[in-house]
Structures are given as structure tokens and as C-alpha cells.
Design a protein around this nucleic acid. Structure first.
Length: 777
DNA sequence: AACTCTGATGTGAGA
DNA sequence: CATCAGAGTT
């Protein structure tokens, strides 16, 4: 009997306790926004082990992002030190990828298969379409990808697939060729990961049986966002034990465009006979005013598992609407409001600006920058998508899989070595690009191709014994990649790119610090399955900017939902299709329910978009909030809320409420992850972000908001610092002369003494020696 | 044969 | 406003 656990379970509300108590058989937990489902899930796992004697290794819990998995793992470990680790807590894609590595032979793949991201698959698709002589105007690679992705999500191969399309035969042919091309490259796309596991387990009952013997208890988080393949897979795995618990909320289903089908949660009781259903309707996150407004919006959707969210957090303030004349003014209003709130004691890190699409962040970023308000963008142009990063990753990928012709095509003339498109096309004509490279190199041993081959052979040799970071360093050295950037790019651009590559190297070193055995394969898998939110740092004292999709599962005391305009949100391509409009509405619901204490919704009358002005009407989602549930909106509808708007008198005073009201325990759990175990590696974002390398390299005058001046330089022994992996520590020794080789010896509270390279260690200064300035407190 | 410039083009969310 | 393909230049 674990007293701490029992105490925590006793603190659950009756419905949560019920969900924790039903351990056998199929169970659907309808978990409204902010209803403490993560808490319930972790307790459930702990209770299975502690109360019911379930072997931790028999539990498989699946979430959608690595971040969510990691948070849950930490919580389970905290409840059951020493045993929680044995629970399999992962994402669908990681689980499948690892299974395929383990059983690659049975699956018909080499162990080092590559996972293609959408860019890679698109390149491959282009080659396939060109090969089939198809008019790229008629069937764009993107369209083809989307159709094929749908097929895979429905577990249909090229043979079974019946595209609802006049050109069905042609599409099937493309699908077939695309699949052959993937196989030839020993590569899989995201959808294949799930599909291949499904095929493997159906073809090999013995392997399925092994999994079913091992795993007896299944949990799926965010069930409303599973696609058919994921649903069938989990149903198959759990069919022996029938202990399947899924948690979700159909009102928060926002990934249908990725193949997710709301049907899975709606039909759970039909799919799994005898299923029990528990509703979690008590909300621990928001005030009633926010919940009422959000509920009013979502009430316009049809739905099956209807909920009524309630809270004991009190009525709180009404959500506010701000109608600005244009996007600049909207951004200025948001920024100045943020500044006011901060002066009133709300830390920047407790505020978030959410938007429908990434391109909307620009004006807000400018407004924040001009007021030197620190912010952080999650998502957008992704780090691993940047050209220079992809270049280096392509080298690594090719070294890990010599059949990856997409990677080879990328590096064969990068940096420029005189092997252009024409040559590559000739070489590729045989269907074996790399093989032909070797043939041609033999034919003219003094030629450019031979030189390339020699380089690659050298690197292959290095790859055999070197660590991933050493290999990467070798790639950079042997190709003179930085020199090439300096020669061919503008100075500023080259600097940016170099610092991004350095950040990549820093990331690799981080991973190696965590796992000294890190293999190239593992690293590439991590990169491929990495999500933007995985590296969101909630503890950072910066305003968070992200899309609504990225905000799912998060919460912030203050939320700004911007660009609430017809055509933007709901997005113009969704307006006319009822089911798509419903998804947009769910997205609005997700956004509104992220707010704990204060919610702003903003719109602009005109907005600069795609290089031109558009005049937009206020979003219907604003109109769907009844009068009296929203302030700042003119009663008549077309009034001038914009020009008449002033901060509500007394708004400052109302913040004592924000500050004094202790957050519910649930909320605090979510929002205060243990810093020592916070996201280690992927600490990069857009170039506006500061990586240690970028920070020391350029003064970043354009982005005063993001620079933390002097934090990295002038470090002295005695300073208190914070490391993303090792937590808090004190600098014991500083060595080195130039930026490149500063070494810090740091005594960490948790893990003891470590020596780190300043250039690569993402450190934050908490307290400098000889100053009283305190950061981050 | 590779590099460079220009004009046309297409713009949603993301593991 | 980016990127990209294709024409024109080295």
C-alpha cells in the first residue's frame, strides 16, 4: 500500500476516481477540456501497478506527442519511483517505428530504414510522377500525397484502394509506383509506420501473440484524434485482454485533415462491446465565464457525447473582444495589453497568443519586439526543415542508409562540386543512382564523381566507429560546409545558417550526454518523429506564440485568440463544408478553453495578407457567444468597438484576483514541470530564437526581445546557471580563450560535476556572481 | 554543363 | 511574399 498514492487518489473527484477504478474491460473516458485527464491517466497507471499488482511492463500507454508522453512518464515515475519507468509510454509513431526496427526482417526492411518527412516524400513523388509522364498540373504531388495518405490511414494498399475519383486507375498506378520507390529507397513515410506494423501483425500471428502476451493494459490519450489505422491497430493489440481505456473529447477533434476520424470516439461503445463510459465534466482550469463562452460556441456543433463543463473556480471575468482597424493596430493592442498585464504582475510566460495559421504571427512579433517584450514562437518554419540543417541531416541519413536516393540527390552537389542536374539525371537513369556513381567513379577516377565517391567512402569509414557528433563534425570539415556558406551567401544569412548548423551539432551533443550510446539510427528517428511542441518551454519567461493546433493540451492564465475573422478563422477553405466548419469550431473551442483566467479574442477590419489588403468580417464564432458573455463587442454588431475601445477601468485592480487566486492543484501540476527533467535536446525554434551559438555569434539587434544580453558571456565561477538537462548548478571553473572553446565546469545540484562546452551547452544564467540580478524567479 | 536571374505561382493546420 | 521552374548567361 502506497500511502502517497492513496492520498492522491483520495483527492480525485468521484468521476475521476471511477475511471481509475474501472481497470478491466473497455472504457471510454469522455474528458472535457481541463478536466484533469492527465492526472486521471497517471493515477490509473499507478493504481493498476500498485493496487492491482499489474506488471508495469504489461502497460502500454499511447499519446500523440513526445512531450505529452514524457510528461506522463515523469508523473508516473514520481508516483512510483523505481517502477514507473517500466511502463511503455510512447507515441503511436515512435512505438511503431521501434517495433519495425526490432522486427525489421519480418517486415521486409533493413534495420536502418529511413523515415521520410513530407518534404522527402514530395520529392520522391515528383520523381514518380515525372517517371510516369503525368502532367504535374493535373495531378500535383501534394494532391497525390494526400490521396495516398488517406488510403494508408484507412489501411488500404495500392491493390485494395478504390479512390472515389474518375482517375482511379491512374491514382492506383501512382500509389503503386510511389510505394515501389519507397521500398527501393528503404524508406517509409509517416503513414507507413502504422500501416506496416498493421500488415506485419496480420501476417505474423506469432508476433502479434507475443505483443498480446506482453501488453495486457492499454491506454490511449487524445482518442478523438486517432485515425482508422491507429484505431485498428490498438483494437488488434487489445483484443486478447480487452483492457482498453481511451480518453478523449470529440469537441477537441482537430486533425481530420491528417486522417483522424471523430468516428472512433463516437462509436467506441459499438466497437467495443460492453464498454463503460465515464464523463469528466468538472473543469479545473478555467473560470466559469470562459467555460460558458466556449460552451456556447461549441453548442453549435452536432455531437454525441455532450458534456456540461462546470468549475468551482468562480465566475471570473468575462472574455473580452477587441476589434481593431487593421492588423497593425490589433498587434499593438495585444502587445500593449501584455505590457500592462506584466506590469500588474503577470509574468510573460503565463500569456499566450494563439492564431489559426503561422503567417499571422509576423505583425504580432514586430509589435512585441518594438516593445522589447520577450516572446517565443513554437512551430512555424521548423528547425529541422531549414535548408542547411536538412543538408547536414541528408549526409547523416545517407550514411545511415545507402539506398536513400533522396538524401543522395540532396548532397551530391551540396556544397557545389560540379555535379549538376544533368549529370544526376544521367546517373539516375539506370534506377540506381549510388551504384552508377560508383561505376562512373571507376570509369574516370580523376573526375568530380570520383572525388565525391572518395569523400563519401571516407565518411562511411568514419561512420563505422565515430559518435554521431564526431561524424557530423567530420562531415562539416570534409565538405568545408561553412566555407561554402560564407562564400555563397550574404554575410548575415551565412551567419544565421552556420549558427543553425551549430545548433544541430549542439542538439546531437545533448542527446549524447543523455545517452552516450546514441546511434545514428536512433538520432535520425528522433529527428523524424520530433514535434514542435516537444520543445516548448513553459517555464521560459516569454510570451508564447503558436497555432491553435500546437496549443492543444496546453493551458495559460492569459490567452489571446487573434484574427477571429471570417476567411481566416474559420478558414476560407472550410467555410462551405459543414463538417469542416464544425472542425473549425472545435478549433475555436480548443483555443478558448486554453485560457485559465482571462481570455481575449481579437479581430482586425483589414489585414495585410498574401501581399494585399483584405477586409474581413468578424468571425461567426464571436457572434456565437451570446450577449452578456463577452465584453467589448458593440451590441449592434457594426459599431465601432475598435475606436471606442479602452481598457476596462479597474482592469488593473482585477488582477489581484489573477494573482491571489491559487491555481487549482491540477493546473499547477500541468504547468510546473520539473525543470531538471524538462525537454533536453530540441531547444531551437525559428531564427528569431536564441540558440547559444546564435546568441554569442551575433548581437541580434533586430530581436532585442529575444536576446538575453550578457547571459552567456562574462560568466564567472560562482554564477548560478540552469541547464536544460542537468538542472540548476553553480559554475566552478571557466577555461578557454575564444568563444569556440570556453569550457565550464559546473557543479549541478542533481547530477554533480560536469564539464561542458559553453558553445553547445544551452545554459541560462540564474544569478551572476557579484550581482543581485535574479533571473527567472 | 553549371550558375543566375526572372517571372509566374500558390499560399492551412503537422507526426 | 516566398519559393520554384525555366530561360538566359558564364
Amino acid at each position: 500500500m502506497n500511502a502517497a498514492l492513496e492520498r492522491q487518489i483520495a483527492g480525485l473527484n468521484p468521476r475521476q476516481a471511477e475511471a481509475v477504478g474501472i481497470t478491466e474491460g473497455p472504457l471510454l473516458v469522455v474528458a472535457g477540456a481541463g478536466s484533469g485527464k492527465t492526472r486521471m491517466l497517471t493515477m490509473r497507471i499507478a493504481a493498476l501497478i500498485e493496487r492491482h499488482g499489474v506488471d508495469p511492463t504489461a502497460i502500454l500507454a499511447v499519446t500523440f506527442t513526445n512531450k505529452a508522453a514524457k510528461e506522463m512518464r515523469e508523473r508516473v515515475q514520481a508516483l512510483l519511483p523505481g517502477r514507473g519507468e517500466a511502463v511503455t509510454l510512447t507515441t503511436f509513431h515512435t512505438f511503431c517505428s521501434q517495433l519495425l526496427r526490432k522486427w525489421h526482417e519480418a517486415a521486409g526492411f533493413p534495420e536502418g530504414f529511413t523515415i521520410y518527412d513530407e518534404d522527402d516524400s514530395e520529392k520522391l513523388m515528383k520523381l514518380v510522377l515525372a517517371d510516369l509522364n503525368l502532367d504535374p498540373k493535373k495531378c500535383t504531388p501534394r494532391a497525390m500525397q494526400s490521396v495516398i495518405s488517406q488510403a494508408k490511414n484507412e489501411l488500404q494498399g495500392p491493390e485494395e484502394f478504390k479512390p472515389p475519383h474518375p482517375e482511379a486507375e491512374r491514382i492506383k498506378a501512382v500509389y503503386k509506383r510511389y510505394q515501389e520507390a519507397l521500398t527501393k529507397n528503404q524508406a517509409m513515410d509517416f503513414d507507413d509506420l502504422i500501416f506496416c506494423v498493421w500488415k506485419l501483425l496480420n501476417a505474423r500471428p506469432d508476433l502479434l501473440a507475443r505483443l498480446q502476451e506482453r501488453y495486457r493494459y492499454f491506454l490511449v490519450d487524445e482518442y478523438q484524434d486517432t485515425n482508422t489505422a491507429q484505431y485498428k491497430l490498438i483494437a488488434l493489440l487489445s483484443s486478447a485482454s480487452r483492457n482498453l481505456c481511451v480518453v478523449g473529447d470529440e469537441d477537441q477533434s482537430i486533425y481530420s485533415w491528417r486522417g483522424a476520424t471523430i468516428r472512433n470516439i463516437r462509436e467506441f461503445e459499438k466497437d467495443f462491446q460492453g464498454a463503460r463510459v465515464v464523463y469528466l465534466e468538472q473543469n479545473y482550469r478555467s473560470t466559469q465565464g470562459i467555460l460558458d463562452a466556449a460552451s456556447a460556441v461549441i453548442a453549435n456543433n452536432a455531437g454525441t457525447h455532450k458534456k456540461r463543463l462546470w468549475t468551482t473556480n468562480g465566475a471570473g471575468e468575462l472574455p473580452r473582444f477587441i476589434h481593431a482597424a487593421d492588423d497593425r493596430e490589433e498587434a499593438d493592442r495585444i502587445a500593449s495589453e501584455i505590457r500592462t498585464l506584466e506590469r500588474d504582475g503577470i509574468p510573460y510566460g503565463e500569456m499566450a497568443i494563439l492564431f489559426r495559421m503561422n503567417s499571422l504571427s509576423r505583425t504580432v512579433e514586430q509589435a512585441l519586439s518594438s516593445r522589447t517584450i520577450p516572446y517565443e514562437v513554437t512551430g512555424g518554419l521548423k528547425f529541422f526543415q531549414r535548408r542547411e540543417v536538412k543538408d547536414i541531416l541528408a549526409y547523416l541519413r545517407f550514411l545511415g542508409n545507402r539506398n536513400d536516393s533522396i538524401a543522395l540527390r540532396r548532397i551530391i552537389n551540396t556544397p557545389r562540386r560540379g555535379i549538376g542536374d544533368t549529370t544526376v539525371s544521367k546517373l539516375a537513369a539506370s534506377g540506381d543512382l549510388w551504384g552508377e556513381v560508383m561505376v562512373q567513379a571507376g570509369a574516370s577516377p580523376r573526375g568530380k564523381i570520383a572525388a565525391f565517391l572518395k569523400l563519401m567512402e571516407e565518411l562511411v569509414g568514419t561512420a563505422e566507429h565515430a559518435t554521431v557528433s564526431a561524424l557530423t563534425k567530420a562531415i562539416l570539415d570534409r565538405t568545408s560546409y561553412f566555407d561554402w556558406l560564407n562564400e555563397t551567401e550574404e554575410e548575415k544569412e551565412a551567419e544565421d545558417r552556420i549558427s543553425n548548423v551549430e545548433s544541430l551539432l549542439a542538439d546531437i551533443r545533448f542527446q549524447e550526454e543523455e545517452n552516450p550510446q546514441l546511434s545514428l539510427r536512433e538520432y535520425l528517428e528522433k529527428v523524424a518523429l520530433h514535434a514542435d511542441v516537444d520543445d516548448l518551454d513553459e517555464t521560459a519567461e516569454r510570451v508564447h506564440l503558436m497555432t491553435l493546433h500546437n496549443a492543444k493540451g496546453l493551458e495559460f492564465p492569459v490567452v489571446f485568440l487573434m484574427a477571429m475573422e471570417e476567411g481566416v478563422f474559420p478558414h476560407h477553405s472550410s467555410k462551405d463544408l459543414p463538417h469542416q466548419l464544425e472542425e473549425e469550431r472545435r478549433l475555436a473551442y480548443v483555443g478558448m478553453t486554453r485560457a485559465m483566467r482571462r481570455l481575449y479574442m481579437t479581430a482586425a477590419r483589414r489585414r495585410m495578407m498574401f501581399g494585399g489588403w483584405t477586409g474581413n468580417l468578424v468571425s461567426r464564432f464571436i457572434s456565437e457567444v451570446p450577449a452578456g458573455m463577452l465584453t467589448g463587442r458593440p451590441a449592434g454588431g457594426s459599431g465601432s468597438a475598435g475606436t471606442n475601445w479602452h481598457p476596462t477601468p479597474g482592469s488593473a485592480a482585477s488582477f489581484s484576483f489573477l494573482k491571489s487566486q491559487a491555481p487549482a492543484e491540477e493546473s499547477r501540476d500541468i504547468r510546473t514541470p520539473n525543470p531538471a527533467t524538462q525537454a533536453p535536446g530540441y531547444s531551437f525554434r525559428k531564427s528569431t530564437e536564441t540558440s547559444p551559438a546564435a546568441e554569442s555569434r551575433s548581437a541580434a539587434p533586430d530581436h532585442p526581445a529575444n536576446s538575453e544580453p550578457g547571459t552567456m558571456l562574462n560568466l564567472q565561477s560562482g554564477s548560478d546557471v540552469f541547464h536544460q538537462v542537468f538542472g540548476k548548478g553553480r559554475v566552478a571553473l571557466v577555461e578557454g580563450r575564444s568563444l569556440g572553446d570556453f569550457r565550464l565546469t559546473i557543479d549541478f545540484e542533481k547530477v554533480g560535476r560536469k564539464t561542458l562546452l559553453l558553445q553547445y551547452a544551452s545554459l541560462r544564467v540564474i544569478k551572476k556572481q557579484h550581482t543581485q540580478e535574479v533571473k527567472g524567479c
